[in-house]
Nucleic acid binder design. Structure first.
Length: 426
RNA sequence: GCGGUUGUGGUGAAGUUGGUUAACACUCUGGAUUGUGGCUCCAGCAUUCGCGAGUUCGAGUCUCGUCAAUCGCCCCA
């Protein structure tokens, strides 16, 4: 058979059992968000390009990986590559900063788009769940937010993970550190790999992460983030760590941890499996953004949030035996034999109106085939309607567990089926 | 965006140094069982090997291109 169409690279179809698994994951997310007082927000999947791309944005995600296009009115639009920026836009546009109840705690679930080379756990259309707590600056808010994600992945059956955490300091600390790194590495420019040349220009913090050069001598005495934290940032970070200790959340300070996005300040973190195998293993990650809201014109408010990659999270949960779902058996499977017209449909509709799920067989095949189909549907009850039944206005009701069959007047059908289904629950 | 590996039916897969009708298993469809499934036994189901071109008397098997998946880099959820 010729395959004329296929899904775009880096996308996937979700169906059968997988959909149920995803629904279950989303259910867990919604329940736990409610426990923490987070409310859902749904923003557009595309926004004006400027929402995502700031003036001096240095991240690859923004500069190389966005789906940007001109709409028919000639405006530049971009499919959202992440959740935070759109939420901040919305927060400011609707003047949520004026609320007496800050921080505003919002969560979102939905597709995100990045144009990169797909791999396992890395798609062009992928799905993120994320939270944002906007309008407060408190180390315990950082801790609580990390804990929210932690509770969610635990509820999905994920264990053996840890938090990697670091502090970038406030904006002054951060830029001081950035300059220090640049100064430190510039004399060694000739010895650095090509990737590091680029990094040094765009995002000097990432040089520290280089897999090619990391063992060189001049890396060992490179300045460390923690040395550049001022008193306030230092104290803030200590309180975050203390809070994680108190909640029993396992973490590891990683002074090389830098997030890809430009807007982070102070706390940044990433949650990864402990026996770190794949490259795309980060489950959820985020941090504080002090200054983002202001850059959108919303006043001097601090925020904290994270994004969780659902494909990765669900895959990991399944690997570890979590998110098990059962098939969804149908209550009644209606078999039609011979010319019965709409008799079967009328039966099914009467059952459905009583809240009993019913599926009709439209294949016009033999009885054996229809019974097999009923078996695949895992139906508890099979109703057989043939020409004799139509004539006498009766139905044959078969209990698939007891393998007993009764013939009753059509009027008593619902009652008898209910009795069988009830027996099943006991 | 760069490099490596892979690509045979609904599924899992055999396919030897290129040689006539693409093994086997599961599933599915029909029958044995004239209106009753889960066991058993028969029978059937890929004009075609991701797609396109080339080499050859002849290609699933070789070459090139292309698409896709996957691994590493980059980046990140």
């Amino acid at each position: 058979m010729e395959n004329r169409y296929q899904m775009p690279r880096g996308t996937f179809d979700l169906f059968d059992q997988d959909v149920i698994v995803w629904q279950k994951a989303e259910e867990i997310i919604r329940e736990i968000c409610a426990l923490y007082g987070y409310e859902e927000i749904r923003t557009p999947v595309f926004e004006a390009t400027e929402v995502f791309k700031g003036e001096n944005d240095s991240s690859d995600m923004v500069n190389k990986e966005m789906y940007t296009f001109d709409d028919n009115g000639g405006r530049s639009m971009t499919l959202r590559p992440e959740g935070t920026k759109g939420i901040i836009r919305s927060f400011v546009e609707h003047k949520m900063f004026g609320s007496p109840d800050l921080p505003r705690k919002l969560f979102y679930i939905g597709p995100m788009f990045r144009y990169g080379r797909p791999q396992k756990g890395r798609y062009r259309q992928f799905h993120q769940f994320g939270v944002e707590a906007i309008g407060a600056r408190d180390p315990l808010l950082d801790v609580e937010t990390i804990a929210l994600g932690w509770q969610i992945i635990k509820a999905m059956g994920i264990s053996n993970v840890k938090v990697l955490i670091n502090s970038l300091g406030d904006q002054p600390s951060r830029s001081a550190y950035r300059n220090a790194l640049k100064q430190h590495f510039t004399p060694h420019l000739d010895e650095l790999c090509p990737d590091c040349h680029r990094r040094l220009e765009q995002n000097p913090l990432r040089v520290l992460d280089c897999k090619v050069d990391r063992d060189r001598d001049f890396f060992k005495d490179a300045p460390s983030t923690t040395e550049y934290l001022n008193e306030e940032s230092r104290n803030y970070f200590d309180k975050v760590l203390k809070g994680l200790d108190d909640l029993g959340i396992e973490y590891e300070i990683d002074t090389h941890l830098v997030r890809g996005l430009d807007y982070y300040t102070n706390t940044v973190f990433e949650v990864v499996p402990k026996d770190d195998d794949g490259q795309q293993s980060t489950i959820y990650a985020g941090g504080q953004y002090d200054g983002l809201v202001e850059s959108f014109g919303g006043g001097d408010l601090c925020g904290f949030g994270f994004g969780m990659g659902l494909e990765r999270t669900i895959a990991l949960a399944k690997e570890q035996g979590g998110l098990q779902v059962e098939g969804k058996p149908v209550d009644v499977y209606v078999i039609a034999i011979g010319e019965v017209g709409d008799y079967g449909l009328r039966i099914a509709q009467r059952l459905r109106s009583e809240g009993i799920s019913a599926v009709l067989d439209y294949t016009h095949r033999g009885m054996k085939g229809q019974f097999k189909a009923a078996e695949r549907a895992q139906s508890r009850v099979i109703i057989i309607a043939g020409e004799d039944e139509v004539k006498n206005n009766t139905v044959n009701i078969k209990d698939t567990e007891k393998r007993e069959q009764i013939t009753v007047p059509s009027a008593e059908m619902t009652e008898k089926v209910c009795a069988i289904l009830k027996g099943q629950e006991e």
